[in-house]
Simulated scan of single mutants.
Amino acid sequence: MNAIISAAELANALAGPKPPVVLDIRYQLGGPNLRPAYEEGHIPGAVFVDLDSELAAPAGAGGRHPLPDMEVFGAAMQAAGVSANRDVVVYDGGLGWAAARAWWLLRWTGHPSVRVLDGGLAAWDGPIEAGTPSPVAGTFLPSPGALPLLDADGAAALARTGLLLDARAAERYRGEVEPIDRIAGHIPGAVSAPTTENVTESGHFRPAAELAERFKSLGATGTCEVGVYCGSGVSAAHEILALQVAGIPAALYAGSWSEWSADESRPVATGPDPQ
């Protein structure tokens, strides 16, 4: 199944005999919780899911957005109506980073059918609903391991033996600025690949062939293992989604730069991409 869905396709699915569960993952890094915006208006039937408390564990040694406790995540998905035998569509109000985090977590924990709304809420021109729905509880039980996952040592190894992509802005990769984490720079051997370049100005994903050509130019070949990291494991999920659209499997380093840079024993590189 395609990992993304258009607004028109979603409208048709919602009008069908077995509509998908729709999750609203609106999120603003460092900003206020966006539940009030959700309550003012959302895609009909969509259930709000909070990234900080339901799609991540508290910040700590594992980074700013460690993977969530599976009981917490499973309970949130069940409360939202998620079951393994029902399609899920996720969206957010931006470029799709938060929605991609939900997509990756559901796929990693074994859900077989999850798609991200291409273009996010801005692409939706159908009806908008206010308030908070009360969905029938789902039965989804997360079973981690369906997608590849890297720890810090695995990311370091992949930077030497395969292709490790850094999904952050290029200036953060080069070490010119670091607005959040302890130190600026990147994992030695990683290749700069800002995830913002995977979408058009409207926030829609570029065509699969165009994405495939982009990743090929960065070193992704049929025989090369690929991994992705970012600041805290959120925008990296968006890059993994783009890689899937391009037909390229990739592993997520969930701790990402926030975990790597917090450990003073780990090496840090700066400067332009070695390619």
Rank of each mutant, 00 (worst) to 15 (best):
A236P: 00
L218V: 02
G62T: 07
A37Y: 12
H42F: 00
H238F: 06
R26Y: 05
G219D: 00
A170T: 14
E9P: 02
E54N: 12
V116D: 00
S6L: 00
G175K: 14
D151H: 02
G219N: 02
V88Y: 01
E54T: 09
I4S: 09
D87Q: 13
A157S: 10
E176R: 06
E259Q: 14
V72S: 08
D92P: 00
L141C: 11
T132R: 11
G94Q: 06
D87V: 08
L55A: 09
A80W: 05
L149G: 01
M1D: 11
G96V: 08
I187G: 02
L141H: 08
L34N: 06
A250S: 11
G63W: 02
L243W: 08
A167Q: 04
V82L: 02
D92Q: 03
D151Y: 10
A155C: 04
A80K: 06
G93P: 00
Y38S: 05
A75I: 07
E210Y: 04
G227E: 00
V199P: 04
V72P: 05
A167D: 09
G222Y: 07
K216L: 13
P142T: 02
P36R: 00
E176Y: 06
G31D: 14
G131D: 09
P32Q: 14
G63M: 05
R174I: 15
A84I: 09
F215A: 04
P58S: 03
P142W: 05
V116T: 06
A13C: 07
A100V: 13
V89R: 00
A269I: 08
G41E: 09
F140S: 03
R35Q: 14
E54Q: 15
A15W: 10
V22H: 07
T196R: 11
W108F: 02
P148L: 14
I43K: 05
P274N: 03
A246V: 08
